[in-house]
Design a protein around this nucleic acid. Structure first.
Length: 576
RNA sequence: GGUGGGGUAGCUCAGCUGGUUAGAGCGCAGGACUCAUAAUCCUGAGGUCGAGAGUUCAAGUCUCUCUCCCACUACCA
């Protein structure tokens, strides 16, 4: 039994996430976690909300709440939506939690002890009316190059040029609109990433389980040369800057930069999980993270969108390696491209696309889970369209899987008293089906191991489709007229296939799988993805259910998506 | 601008270190079947693999040029 630690990129606290966020980190991580649990491994799947930073502070202000209250509320909302999508987190934490505060401060201390942090003075935009320093993008003004009047301090959206806020003409605060702006000196802590360049490169060189996309992004940063970066900000909301447990002089009104503390929350959330252990339960977070305390046998897998890769392959490892402490580093890193929405991006700020809470109002989570995995943006960006969604669901789920389960269970009910038939001998059709399973099931497992989710879904579907093909070959409804025993073999095999189809469906569509397996009375211990444990062969899968066992026909598993619904949703959400 | 990824059947995508007639699903056409959610199964049509040049006995697969799309570009996260 292997120990597998899984984390998905922390969703930012600022509002419910859209389907693109779900498809690019949380959902595949969940599918992978479910898969590995069903393989019998010891899995710990950790996620959390990323709560610090300027956007959270401003959103709280806009909502008339303290950042703390705002985050508490938003965290609960995100946690519930995650539940709605059946994301099987072992823990869904908060980056503002106490453990993360402690860990972040401890890491900073270690880094400074190791000569990797120094104080530097930098010049920043200060808004007098807002009484705060402003990040570059919260300063707006007229672009010195093209005259665009709403250029941001970091970049002009009109001409695309990178800017420095001091270059803007007539600058004003994007927070309040105030023009009372000045440049002030401010002290910040800089993490000396440049000193870690060689160590990081050696570590990336040695990482042989990373996909191409991941490595190329890491090397890009390394080739350009790691720059020292500021890890503190002039904000009130965040992890307070300390030195050896005491407020750091001159930094009383500053916090660590959100990108410094957020990845540390992977560890922090595990600590939270540990602290929440119930009566008589032992949870040791350090055994998952400290290689000197048991984590050396842990395989750590991270899931994220491509925008996050640099931070996970370079920035966070600088923190970990720079600490000189035996913390666990990532072993496998799966990065995703974007799910696109009618030619553009899903966008939280522009409210483009479908958001997780809205999606659940339209259809049960399985529908979305299947579509988003079967069309996962793995190799390149993937387009979401309502029509594609409709045809994928209707074909794969309603027709191929749902109809298979329905036809065989109904037929068993009407002709074989709702029992697994006892009689009849196997023939050619069963041999053909066994052969299919023998070649396809190992492929399916391999795709999951490789984290090739599109391929895993395609193989799952191919196995379901093979079941329909089998029934055509076996045609029990024809044989029933002349030879009931011959029909019995077909029905028995069909019912066993329905059970198997439910079993392999579990990682992607857990609810539907549960319905199938419950209707067929499959006990928990018989639901694993270890198909050939012991002396069991693939052919045995076709006769695994106890003969004579009562089964029931589940309700129709998937309703088809009607054209009228597509029209309705298109009108409501746009697209097309 | 720089860097990276991508441009393969009507649509969405597979095609690893170059090797016989380029694949899948959907859609489309025809047929079979009737247990089933007008579902399923079979067969078929359909591609100058973005454009051009080069290397090679052989290129979707390697090199160069061009073109279009997307992402990243370190103080948004």
């Amino acid at each position: 039994m292997a120990r597998i630690l899984i984390t998905s990129a922390l969703p930012y606290i600022n509002g419910v996430k859209h389907l693109g966020n779900l498809a690019g980190s949380m959902l595949p991580a969940d599918v992978y976690a479910r898969f590995q649990r069903l393989r019998g491994h010891d899995v710990l799947y950790i996620c959390a909300t990323d709560e610090h930073g300027t956007p959270a502070e401003l959103a709280a202000k806009a909502a008339g709440q303290t950042p703390d209250d705002y985050c508490k509320e938003q965290h609960k909302i995100q946690r519930e939506v995650g539940k709605g999508f059946k994301l099987s987190y072992d823990w869904f934490g908060r980056s503002s939690s106490r453990p993360n505060n402690e860990l972040t401060q401890a890491f900073a201390d270690k880094l400074e002890d190791n000569g990797l942090i120094e104080e530097r003075t930098s010049r920043q935009v200060y808004s007098i009316d807002d009484k705060r320093f402003l990040p570059d993008r919260y300063v707006e003004g007229t672009c010195p190059h093209c005259g665009y009047e709403k250029a941001r301090g970091d970049q002009c959206d009109n001409c695309g040029r990178l800017l420095d806020p001091v270059d803007l003409k007539d600058p004003y605060s994007a927070v309040s609109g105030s023009k009372k702006i000045e440049i002030r000196d401010t002290q910040h802590l800089f993490l000396l990433q440049s000193k870690m360049q060689d160590r990081i490169r050696a570590w990336v060189d040695a990482a042989d389980h990373w996909p191409q996309l991941t490595k190329s992004i890491a090397y890009k940063w390394l080739d350009e040369g790691l720059q020292d970066r500021s890890i503190t900000r002039d904000l009130a909301w965040g992890v307070p800057v300390t030195r050896n447990g005491k407020p750091r002089p001159g930094f009383e009104n500053k916090v660590y930069y959100v990108w410094f503390d957020a990845p540390i929350e992977y560890i922090g959330a595990t600590w939270e999980w540990s602290s929440a252990a119930g009566e008589g339960e032992t949870r040791d977070w350090r055994s998952w993270w400290r290689t000197d305390e048991g984590a050396d046998d842990v395989t750590y897998v991270q899931f994220m969108g491509k925008d996050n890769v640099a931070f996970h392959t370079v920035s966070f490892p600088v923190t970990i390696l720079g600490s000189q402490e035996p913390w666990k580093l990532v072993d496998k890193l799966k990065a995703f491209n974007w799910l696109t929405w009618y030619g553009g991006k899903f966008s939280t700020s522009e409210k483009r696309g479908v958001f997780m809470d809205q999606a659940l109002e339209l259809l049960p989570s399985d529908y979305w889970r299947w579509y988003l995995i079967a069309n996962s943006p793995e190799g390149s960006d993937a387009a979401f369209t309502w029509q594609n969604f409709q045809s994928t669901i209707n074909s794969d789920l309603a027709n191929v899987l749902g109809n298979f389960v329905n036809r065989i269970t109904k037929y068993a009910g009407s002709k074989f008293h709702g029992q697994v038939p006892k009689d009849g001998e196997r023939g050619e059709a069963e041999a053909w089906m066994a052969k299919e399973l023998e070649t396809r099931l190992p492929l399916l497992l391999q795709h999951y191991e490789d984290m090739e989710f599109r391929k895993a879904a395609a193989e799952t579907r191919a196995i379901w489709a093979a079941g329909n093909e089998y029934l055509t070959k076996a045609e029990p409804w024809v044989k029933y007229k002349t030879d009931v025993d011959a029909a019995a073999v077909g029905v028995r095999t069909g019912l066993n296939l329905a059970a198997l189809f439910g079993i392999i469906a579990q990682p992607i569509i857990p609810d539907a799988a549960q319905k199938i397996l419950t209707a067929l009375n499959i006990p928990e211990q018989a639901r694993s993805l270890n198909f050939t444990s012991g002396d069991r062969s693939y052919a045995d899968l076709l006769d695994a259910l106890p003969r004579g066992m009562e089964i029931s026909a589940p309700d129709v598993l998937f309703a088809k998506i009607e054209d009228a619904q597509v029209e309705d949703w298109t009108a409501r959400f746009g697209g097309g």
